[in-house]
Nucleic acid binder design. Structure first.
Length: 443
RNA sequence: GUGGGCGUAGCUCAGCUGGUUAGAGCAUUAGACUGUGGCUCUAAGGGUCGCGGGUUCGAAUCCCGUCGCUCACCCCA
């Protein structure tokens, strides 16, 4: 197969990460770890259990759950023929896969109500943009099998707890109810009728939305459309009694536990499966695409993919966007990048001096590591000065020197980098000395 | 899929209306009386100016194409 393009020169092609993907290089990992670790802590704290599902699934799972006429399904999925008659798709989101697993293993029969969390890559074939990639990462939860409005609130509190723990200031919680399968169609028709009266005043895009996705018109940024939708009825006036009661309980509980929110009647969702509560957490530092978390209740999804009729609620945090927001906040406060999360500085750097003593040093290195103290070593045969520079740069606390002089006496010299103080001791005492000052760590 | 911006050393960029061997800062490496870091100083390495074509005596600089990146739109995390 010849895949060489015209511009490529023979033997001269530099491979690049595919469009819309990102390499996380050393130095950028700290924030990913911070976010991931904090997420795991909070999920544990709140009784969510990790679930890992494959990165690809039967294509039909997504078509049925997300909705056939959504952009995701129509043009954004990475779909492949797996064999003659099966088609697989790289997951564009994880709610459906989690539900699939829940049903496949009949977890609802063991215990109807269960709480899951997942962290992992998702795939959507879109034009890349700030904070939006083709392979992106989400961290999310699904609380499956209960209709209690307090559960909706719990999920919101899980998200805000994560952001609070990280110290991400400046996020906003927006919530809305989009009704259920009973009241939403009623509102949709009324809205459509009313908007049709103003059809000519709407922007071109919104005119096409009239048939495609009426609710999105409420969310349009065009000034004329905004003006028109300002006078449109609100979904809140058309909610059925059940949905009204649910929405009211959610808002009351949010107040009760002290989570400030903005009730936004124009908040809509792109995925078909949402019912009742929808919410979004956004961060003002982000610009055009400012959502860092989105979620809501989906009472019909499980039944839609062949399971019992039970309600669930969940969210997904967009990790790229969240990390951007954290960086923005840190830049503003001039705070260093989560230094204490960093495990990459070795405690000890061992300087090797010449071939004769190198083996001894290497042996010492492995003794130290065996005690779970982090240590590193020079393999480049560089000058002592150069090795010292490296030790300093990587942030080692101690530099151990074992040269011919020390070796002859069975000693080592340890330099304490912070104070420049040097101590000499027997080689056999090094471990005890280090362990007396530092507790072993696994990181 | 649509529209805007950009593409010069590893990174961030300078290079005016086209003119001799393309620059800086950071980073890297090496040295500053030779077994020692962080500061300072010195020096070195590193660029087919994304790629292809055109205009011109001459182009990183102008034109066209192409690829890539980026931002925004649709949509969405």
């Amino acid at each position: 197969m010849d895949v060489t393009t015209k511009t490529e020169k023979k033997n001269d092609y530099v491979f690049k990460a595919p469009r819309g993907t990102e390499d996380v290089l050393p130095g950028k990992w700290e924030l990913w770890r911070l976010l991931e670790n904090t997420g795991r802590q909070v999920f544990d704290l709140c009784g969510y259990y990790e679930i890992r599902t494959p990165v690809f699934e039967d294509t039909r799972l997504f078509v049925r759950s997300i909705g056939e006429v959504t952009d995701i399904v129509e043009k954004e999925m990475y779909t492949f023929a797996d064999s003659e008659d099966s088609s697989i798709t790289l997951r564009p989101e994880s709610t459906a896969p989690v539900m699939r697993a829940y049903l496949e293993y009949e977890l609802h029969k063991i215990k109807k109500f269960q709480k899951f969390y997942y962290i992992g890559p998702q795939f959507r074939k879109e034009r890349p943009q700030a904070g939006r990639l083709r392979q992106f990462h989400q961290m999310g939860i699904e609380a499956v099998g209960a209709n209690d409005p307090l559960l909706d609130v719990e999920t919101i509190s899980v998200a805000t707890r994560i952001f609070d723990r990280i110290g991400l200031e400046g996020y906003k919680v927006k919530i809305n109810s989009i009704g259920c399968e009973k009241c939403r169609p009623v509102f949709r028709n009324i809205l459509k009728e009313k908007l049709c009266e103003h059809e000519k005043g709407l922007c071109e895009l919104c005119q096409s939305r009239l048939n495609r996705n009426v609710f999105r018109i409420l969310d349009c940024k065009n000034e004329k459309c905004k003006a028109i939708s300002y006078h449109m009825p609100s979904i809140n006036d058309y909610l059925c009694v059940e949905c009204q009661v649910h929405a009211k309980s959610v808002r009351e509980a949010l107040l009760e536990i002290g989570i400030p929110y903005i009730a936004d009647a124009h908040l809509v969702r792109g995925l078909d499966y949402y019912t009742k509560t929808v919410y979004e957490i956004s961060h003002s530092s982000l610009g055009a695409r400012d959502a860092i978390c989105a979620g809501g209740r989906y009472d019909n999804l499980i039944a839609d993919i062949g399971g019992p009729s039970i309600g669930s609620v969940g969210f997904a945090i967009g990790m790229e966007a969240t990390i951007l927001a954290i960086e923005n906040v840190m830049a503003k406060k001039n705070k260093p990048v989560a230094q204490d999360m960093l495990c990459s500085s070795p405690l000890v750097y061992i300087i090797s001096m010449g071939e004769e003593t190198k083996k001894q040093s290497f042996h010492l290195l492995n003794m130290i590591r065996k005690s779970d103290l982090s240590a590193d070593f020079d393999y480049e045969g560089r000058s002592i000065k150069a090795q010292m520079r490296t030790a300093n740069k990587v942030g080692a606390k101690y530099v151990i020197m074992l040269g011919p002089d020390e070796s002859a006496r069975g000693d080592v010299k340890i330099k304490l980098m912070e104070t420049s103080e040097e101590v000499t001791m027997k080689q056999s005492d090094v471990l005890t000395w280090l362990l007396g000052r530092h507790t072993p760590s696994k990181c």
